[in-house]
Design a protein around this nucleic acid. Structure first.
Lengths: 204, 204
DNA sequence: GTCTATAGCCAGATAGAC
DNA sequence: GTCTATCTGGCTATAGAC
């Protein structure tokens, strides 16, 4: 039944199955039985390996977040110019998310449900910070490379333009009257479209 | 207990309480007992007025969507220029959502959970369409007012920049290390910031 | 219309055989 | 480690008194 049967050990199979179910249904909507079915094993095994639904969920969540964090580090802590970063990030991020379409919504939704999760994660070493990016924007504005803009606002704009369509996919599909295929084509075009849109706005 | 005790009739009090609970917890996370408590009445009354949790939820959802739709119509079907629309929409939408902060996430989340909801709503008369906006963008591009851009992509950009921060509030707060107050100030600045960012990018 | 009490079900968790 | 069977609690929904 599992989508990704990689002959893993049981623990890995459970985590894989749990990822799929939790990311589609959320903590409240997910059922341990469904995860067990997806993993092709018994409900009791879930508890044997992860003790409780809560702990299994947290394992999935941390895992998901640690996939997303390096993506954000590319825009925040890379050494290239802002323009380069915007171009690379936009293209890379959209490619990445197309492979994990439920990921951003899952993270956002569960952070809304329980903001305390963030505090836990924030303490981990891999957690991206905004400092370098803010300084770099300020520098490039002073040098006259960029029009005046606040680094925080620019950061919000970049992630909004890149992430939102994947969070609100059904909404976009509905308004634009497109299906799965049309949506994929649209996102493919956005890989360059979004970068151009941002650069157009901020470059002198 | 209810947040908004307007001396309404029972049915209205229930709907108000249900709105608060459903928008914070979602369909799966919400409890009928919590709604009853918030309305200051008995659990049995919920079923007396709305038959089931599902029907009560649908009432709340339709209500929420019919609040949001007119906001979108302002950007889609108003008669002013694209530039005017972008300025007005950005300011108006951010003001509106600041008063209903759970609304966008609620809509998006529940559409992800059950995309069939969209079909129902789509048939209602008030449902906004993209046609006029697309034509107008095309016109203004031809006239040389705007740089070449696809109307659909521009629409996605506009709603992404405006809606995303309210959907991903905990994420933004975490990255920027700000509290409620800081977030409000940030959004206040975005009322003009976002419009400027968009206009900068598309205007010739 | 409004309440209390309870039916009936379902999900998470555990006991215990193998 | 893996299974079946079962406990336990919580939740939606309803019955029925007032």
């Amino acid at each position: 039944m599992a989508k990704t049967n990689k002959n893993q050990d049981t623990e890995g199979q459970i985590l894989d199955a749990a990822k799929n179910v939790f990311q589609k249904k959320g903590m409240d909507g997910a059922r341990m039985q469904e995860i067990a079915d997806a993993a092709g094993i018994n409900k009791a095994m879930l508890h044997y390996y992860y003790r409780s639904k809560q702990l299994l969920f947290e394992a999935v969540f941390s895992n998901a977040f640690s996939l997303l964090a390096p993506q954000l580090n590319k825009i925040l802590n890379d050494d290239s110019s802002i323009e380069e970063k915007v171009k690379n990030f936009t293209s890379n991020y959209i490619s990445f998310i197309s492979k994990h379409p439920y990921l951003p919504n899952f993270i956002i939704q569960e952070l809304n449900r329980n903001p305390k999760f963030f505090e836990k994660i924030q303490k981990s070493a891999a957690f991206p910070t905004l400092e370098k990016f803010k300084n770099q924007v300020e520098e490039e504005v002073e040098k006259g490379i960029l029009k005046p803009i606040d680094g925080e606002q620019l950061f919000i704009n970049i992630i909004s333009l890149n992430i939102f369509p994947f969070v609100a996919t059904p909404l976009i599909k509905g308004f634009l009257k497109i299906d799965d295929k049309g949506f994929k084509q649209l996102m493919e075009r956005r890989k360059t479209e979004v970068a151009g849109f941002i650069i157009n706005s901020i470059k002198k």
